[in-house]
Structures are given as C-alpha cells and as structure tokens.
Nucleic acid binder design. Structure first.
Lengths: 348, 348
DNA sequence: CTGTTAGCGCTTTCAC
DNA sequence: GTGAAAGCGCTAACAG
C-alpha cells in the first residue's frame, strides 16, 4: 500500500475532499457543491475552493462517489474473445457510445468457457458495474433471468439462441440479409447455390437459412438438402464444408457461407483446387468484417452494422439504467449487401 | 434509481452485509470474516452466515470493499482503437493475465485524439482504477511524469516515442526483428531491398530502420536512400510508397514493409500492376497480425508476441501495484520471422 | 472467537 | 449560503 504524507503541494498523494475543505477554509459539503457545479455557493467560497483544487490538482474519488451515489458509471461487457474483428468492431462502437455518456466499459473475455462467463457475470453484478452488455452469450435463458431477478440490467447483443421477449436485445436482420445475398446470386444466373451454415439451433444459422431458402423458393428453385452443409463459423470448417460441396456429383456454381470466415475457408479450398473465384465459383459471406476487404478476390458479403449494434445496445442499456421503459425490447438492425469481386455469373 | 424493498427472499434487491449479519444473528465483522474465508470463525457462526448467504444469494459489494481496501481491482487500458488485430490481440493477452489475478480491465479507446487520451487518463486516476496499461500512447514524457507524480502506477506498451529509463515499458525487439527479415531476403538473393517505414521519430520506425540498414551493411550492400520511403503504417500509405518504389529506374526486387498493413498495400499495388508476388516482387511485413495469414499470397512477416506483450505488461503492473521494485523497467520481447508465401528468390 | 467502533471519500438532507 | 452529521457497504483494529 502506498501511503505517503503530503507535506508539499506536489500532489505526491491525492487530496481528499476533507483536506481540500480545510485548505479552503470551508466545509466538505461546500467543496462537494463546488465540485459538482451547484449554484447555491457564494462566489467567495467557490473561488477559495477552486484555488485549492487547481493548486493541488484535486479530483474527486469516483469509487467513493459511486458508493455514495449508488452507481459506478461502469458497464460490464462479456464476449467470447476480442481478437476477432466481429467483436472488436462491436466493442469499439459500444465504447464510443459509452464515452459520450461519460461511462466506461469493463471488458470480460470469456474464451467461450461457460463457467468463466458465469463467474464474470457474478463479479459484474457485485456492485462493480451498473449494468452489462452480453455479446454472443452462451448463457441459457435461465441464467439470464437470474440476473434479472437480482435487478441487474443488461442488453444482449446477437444472442446465440432464442431468448425471451422480455429480454432486451439487439441483433441484425439475419433473414433478409441472407435473402439479399441469395437474390444477388440468383440475379447473376446461379441456380445451384450451396449454403454453409453455422451450428444448428443458433439464431444466426436458422434465420439465415430461412432467408436462403425463402429466396430460392421465391424463384421456384427446387430445394436440395445436399446443398446445405452445417459448419461452425470458422475458416477450417468452411474448408471442410467446401470440399464436401465441391465433391458433389453436381456441385454448386456458387456458395453462400454464413459468415466471412467460412467464406474465406471456401476461397482457400477453391484456390487449392485450381478453381477461379468468381469464374468457376462465386462466393458470398456474411458480416463484412475487415478481412472481407483484403482477401483476394475481395469478398462479396452481407454487411452487419456491427458498430451500430454496439452503440444501439448502449443506448438501450442507458435507458434501462435510467429506469425508463423501453418500447421495443428486441431491436433488429438492417443489413446490406456489399458486392465486391467474389461473385460473377456462372461459367456457361 | 431502483429502490425496492426486499420483502421476499428472491433477492429482488441486493442484501447488505448488515442485513446478512442480522439474519444470521451475528455481527457484520463476522460476516466479513466468513466471506473472506478467515480461519478465526466458529463453525457454528460460519454455518449460520453461509446459510443466509446461500439462501439470499449475497455477494459483497466490490465498490464498498474497494473504498475500504484502498484499491478497486480494476486496471485502465488506453489505446487508439480496438478494431485492429494488433490491438485486440494485446488486449486479449492482457485481459487473460488480469483475469488470473482476479482483476478486470476498464477499456478506454482514444481514437487517436490526444485530448481524449488526457481526459481518459484523468478519469482513470480518479480512484476508478489501481493503475493502467497505456498502449501506443500519444502522451509526451511530460504528461506521463504527471501521472507518476500523482503516484499513479502504469506501464506503457510499445511507446510511440522514446521515453525515460524510469518509465515501465514493454515492447518487442524491433531492430533484431527487422534485421532477421532483411537477412531472409538477402539469403534468397535479393540485393535491392526497399523499405517502407512508419512516421519518422517513432521508435518502431527508427529501430526497424536500424535493423534494416544494419543487415544490409553487414553483407556490404551499399545503402540507397531512394529505397527508403517514409509512410504511415496504413494500407493506403503502403500503396503510395509501393508506387514510388516500383517507379524507380532501378526498382527493388523485394520490399520490407514496416508493418503488415503497409505490406498488404504493397501487394495490392503489385497485383494492380500485374506483378507476381513473390515471383516479381517479394514482400515482407512486420507484426504477424491475423491478416498476414489470410491474404493471397500469405505474408512472410516478423512476428511480434502481441498477446505476450499484453500479459507481460500486466505482470509488470501487478508487481508495481504490490509495491515491489522492478529490476528491469524496460522489457523487450523477442520477435521471430514467419516465412510464408510472399517471399522467394528474385527473378533472374 | 466475536462484537464494537472507527473509518475509506463523497453526497446529501437538515438546520442555522 | 453553509456546515454538521448521517450514511453508502465493507474492512480492520481493538477490546473482550
């Protein structure tokens, strides 16, 4: 513990409000008023306090203020990992929005470990934070409602699985986004369009699948189950799935991968097999993460407004913390197709 | 403000240590002892307390504990932006290390705005955090010493510019890493090797330049100033610099870009000009961020132990906070060359 | 072993 | 306008 006397005014150690009060010859209450910009303070007192504050570089201790005020100005954020542009963009958006509210973010990567997620959530609730943003939580609805039961406020970003109507949440328009992607492929003339999905049961998978099937059905393409391969949202999974699709007797001329990493896996396989993208095979991804713009060829993909989602979640949470009722608990942000180089008409 | 009575035991609102004490028929001191796992408590008292704790789901309020204990268990982290794998990997490493110490991270993106960085640092010092990690700070040595003067503990990760010997810091071996990269190119037979640097004055630039020049000098290659182009560590900057180098009367057969983004810019230009990488031009980057492994061709680059740097910084900070003296204030972690597809012997 | 008591630093009635 | 005083929830001496 660093304990040093404050003999000189160099602020070797921080002043307390008590010391400022003494130095300024007023009470702590007055100092508090000045610090918080209250109007009911004489100009004389204000001057005296400000002089000391300036001279010694006093700033109020937020922890103490938090204890007294009943809130900390801190928001917890749990997420699987950070070093994936999908997450870091969301976080950056959220951090920016929080900054505007003069709040800060306590970051808690869970590394996909469920146990850790639980521990972290507990800690967050222990008075360290006022509320939380849960990104892609592994949490079950049960565990989430425990939080609610404790009066803890939070907003879910992109839930893995369906959650209750009453749980605040923000996500992107999976289904329509997927529909758009497929329509783009259809418009180019593709009819055999493969799909590489995420784990079944996940909202992202089911909804995008719905969009995919819907778009196909809309133009009367007969659904072919062998064209739908389940995967895991990682590049290697994308490679495996691509192999499977390309080994089909009648392989697809285009593949719609349910996220960018899967799409990158597909492109890697295509390259290894000497297939030209988009000449021999068109590829579409989902997310529009940074990688989509730097791979060769650049990837046509469905853009999720990631930063926006982060900002929106914060704005929902802030309202929740202010005790305001929120009209729409489930917010769905629109997606848009970003056409780049990985798609073209099928080779005749 | 959410204020609710706690009529039922559903924990609609959190219990205080006082309430637990009453419920268990003991004093708050005893509850505190039990909670903190002290040994000097009778089995009987412990049971009583644990029963209440379990039944009502009591957890200690960290803010209050922090006020009383004099520390918060929170560490601030400032960094320019998050959505760049360079940063997110460091952060992830740091978060992991902090987790092991049961500490959390308060994230503060500065968006390269100096003013914001100052504000954020001030806030962090206001009792919210015990110390901080400053990544790529824009801060001058002066401002940093203000922090020190206030008794605030922090460690710098990868300082932009030279900082005092006394300021704790961790970075990677820029110079030797750059040397290795150039030696690799030299070994492949290249003699005209261009360099695309970062802003001059930055440690990363100057040190890597030193490594580059040193390696060249070691084999007696006559230095050619026109082969060194200053840039800004971004892809577009890399493109511009590459244009300049390739437009030279006697263009280089290999380019050593001082980070991966610059290298990607170089590859984009090469592609646009119809040059084969590595056939017509070899390219080496620096950092080994995720992108290096997914571009086409995959990028040969100097690997910085980013996650390790995050972890190391935390371990330094933890020691600082514990009041321990640190032997080596400046820690330099080793780099290693990762050879991928973007380098080959020069075309005859 | 256990309770009493005094803070930690700040905010906020409530009188004067 | 301003100060005294009572907390916010927890920890830690200090008695017993």
């Amino acid at each position: 513990m660093v304990v040093e006397t404050d003999r000189d005014g160099n602020g070797r150690t921080r002043l307390t409000i008590r010391q400022v009060a003494d130095l300024a010859g007023v009470s702590t209450a007055t100092v508090s008023r000045v610090i918080n910009g209250r109007a009911d303070v004489s100009e004389r007192a204000r001057q005296a306090v400000m002089r000391v504050v300036r001279e010694y570089g006093y700033t109020t201790n937020r922890t103490a203020r938090g204890l007294s005020a009943g809130h900390t100005g801190l928001v917890g954020v749990t997420l699987p990992i950070l070093h994936h542009s999908y997450f870091s963009v969301i976080i950056d958006g959220a951090a920016e929005a929080l900054y505007e509210h003069d709040m800060r973010m306590v970051l808690c990567p869970t590394h996909h470990e469920h146990e850790r997620e639980v521990t972290l959530l507990e800690r967050l609730m222990q008075g360290t934070t006022d509320g939380a943003l849960l990104i892609l939580p592994e949490e079950s609805g049960d565990e989430l409602s425990t939080l609610t039961a404790h009066g803890y406020r939070f907003v879910i970003i992109d839930p893995l699985r369906p959650i209750g109507e009453r749980v605040p949440m923000v996500s992107a328009a999976h289904s329509s986004g997927a529909g758009e992607a497929v329509e783009h492929l259809l418009a180019l003339g593709h009819r055999r369009i493969g799909a590489i999905t995420g784990p079944s049961g996940w909202i992202a998978t089911e909804e995008r699948l719905r969009g995919y099937r819907g778009a196909l059905a809309a133009v009367g393409v007969i659904p072919d189950p062998s064209l739908e391969v389940e995967s895991d949202f990682h590049a290697v999974g994308g490679q495996l799935a691509a192999q499977q699709l390309l080994d089909l007797p009648d392989p697809p001329t285009a593949i719609f991968a349910f996220n960018d990493m899967l799409a990158i896996g597909v492109m890697q396989v295509a390259r290894a097999r000497g297939l030209q993208v988009p000449g021999d095979l068109s590829v579409v991804g989902f997310d529009d993460t940074f990688e989509a713009s730097i791979v060769t060829p650049t990837l046509t993909t469905v853009r999720q407004p990631l930063a926006e989602m982060g900002r929106m979640a914060v704005s929902q949470l802030v309202r929740l913390l202010a005790g305001q009722r929120i009209e729409a608990l489930h917010v769905e942000l629109g997606t848009s197709l970003v056409v780049r180089e990985s798609t073209a008409p099928p080779r005749r």
